[in-house]
Design a protein around this nucleic acid. Structure first.
Lengths: 249, 249
DNA sequence: AGCCATTCGAGTACGATGTACGCAAGACGG
DNA sequence: CCGTCTTGCGTACATCGTACTCGAATGGCT
């Protein structure tokens, strides 16, 4: 039996409780993942090194490899664990707009609690919690006579929006921490001067209008998120048969 | 004059041609960026190390730091250089749907030529080419009486879709290369068994329908991209005043 | 009770990375 | 030609992921 390419982390579940000889495991994937997330939340994903995680658990770095094949796999576990915080009812309510809103807000909240999460654009993730959320969203659009392909496309729009909105919201925050500045200082000496320079160049008329006329950037984050989400949901509403919903403006 | 936090790479333009004492630079940002992209295209972004890039140029690693403050900044330059391949006319045609389609297809094409590009979900990028494309897209939606905030939201949907679609399309390809398998083998022993396992678990009914009834996954990539893009554009059409366009199905 | 197959814990070690530092080589103005 | 400033780049260091290795722990067998 070869050891290369044993499959993704999801096809290699944690060894089950066994009854045989050998020392008992002292840790678990969940425990390791939890420690890694704690570190990443506090100091950024780059700080969550194997050594640092092991230290957090009071063990040696190499011990972790008894539970996780590679660090990349651990990151997959971390991402899915974050999505595990998304709380959804057993089944959609029947009000598709409310249901997709719930998914969006919950996912956003989880993302904001773990800012490192959205900075990872890796392979499409297929962890159990990711699937759970995806399935809920799809069920919210079920029953309108749409083809499954159309439903996946529409749900994708919501997911894409949330990821992108949270990324913008986190914004430079993660990047600022990496260089050790706080948000205000970062905006002041990093982003600010550049934006001013871009505006004054006059090369990007619409960008300038965004800066001058746009109110979105000055709204509180919640309202800003809601605004964009409503645009997306309105777009979805247009794909549903008439009468399936009332458009929101 | 402190050296910390001199601002982003965009506020630190390449030193201009000067007339004074001192040796003349032997390289340029463009040259370095180009070499880095060449390597990343062929062997993945992780292979584009400072040493490797320098080697490609026949110089030493530390020489690069005369042109680029940090590797992260070089990556920013690489991303924007890729977006420089997006070819757009001077001004939008007046047919918003065709214009946004053009942006989407051009951006996708650039992304596919440089698969590493979409795997980077960093800070919101504000490089010159990024701004150029964004501005073009916004202008395509100008003149319909929409508020600038609505226009940015709608354009964001297109951008988000393209990024996400290309990421899916690249899919595991980049990940597969990292482990040294080809695409077929990767699907066969990595993704395949897991998907089968998920389907058989029966826990995700809609995911199962996607696998069983969905035709999207079996379409040629171009058609698949177009399908999703049409969903997004239909959503945008719904936000425009009546008569601005004919819905496409 | 004692042995043994097996599994876990973790120290040591290796190759690779980003980059700080320092100095020699080159290029212009005087 | 010399002083001054810039570039080229070798050396060095901290840190990373992780392969290898072996002692410690454990439960089933005789």
């Amino acid at each position: 039996m070869s050891d290369i390419g044993q499959g993704s982390i999801w096809t290699r579940p944690e060894k089950a409780e066994r009854s045989g000889p050998g020392r008992r495991p002292g840790y678990s994937r969940a425990q390791i993942t939890e420690a890694a997330i704690r570190i990443a939340d506090a100091e950024g994903i780059d700080a969550a090194t194997m050594r640092r995680i092991a230290q957090e658990l009071g063990t040696g770095a190499m011990s972790l490899y008894r539970y996780v094949p590679k660090r990349d796999d651990l990151v997959d576990l971390m991402v899915d664990a974050v999505l595990g915080e998304v709380e959804l009812p057993e089944r959609p309510s029947g009000d598709w707009r409310a249901d997709l809103s719930l998914v969006a807000h919950q996912t956003r909240a989880a993302g904001l609690r773990h800012p490192w999460q959205v900075t990872l654009a890796r392979r499409p993730t297929l962890g159990p919690h990711s699937l759970r959320i995806y399935d809920f969203a799809l069920r919210a659009l079920d029953g309108f006579g749409l083809h499954i392909d159309e439903m996946t496309s529409l749900c994708g729009m919501v997911g894409d929006y949330v990821a992108s909105a949270v990324r913008d919201e986190i914004g430079w925050l993660d990047q600022a921490r990496r260089t050790g500045m706080d948000r205000r200082r970062w905006m002041g000496e990093y982003v600010g001067p550049y934006v001013r320079q871009v505006v004054e160049s006059g090369r990007y008329p619409m960008f300038n209008r965004t800066i001058r006329e746009g109110r979105l950037a000055h709204l509180p984050p919640d309202a800003r998120f809601q605004y964009g989400l409503d645009r997306v949901l309105n777009g979805i509403a247009a794909a549903l048969p008439d009468g399936a919903s009332i458009e929101d403006r």
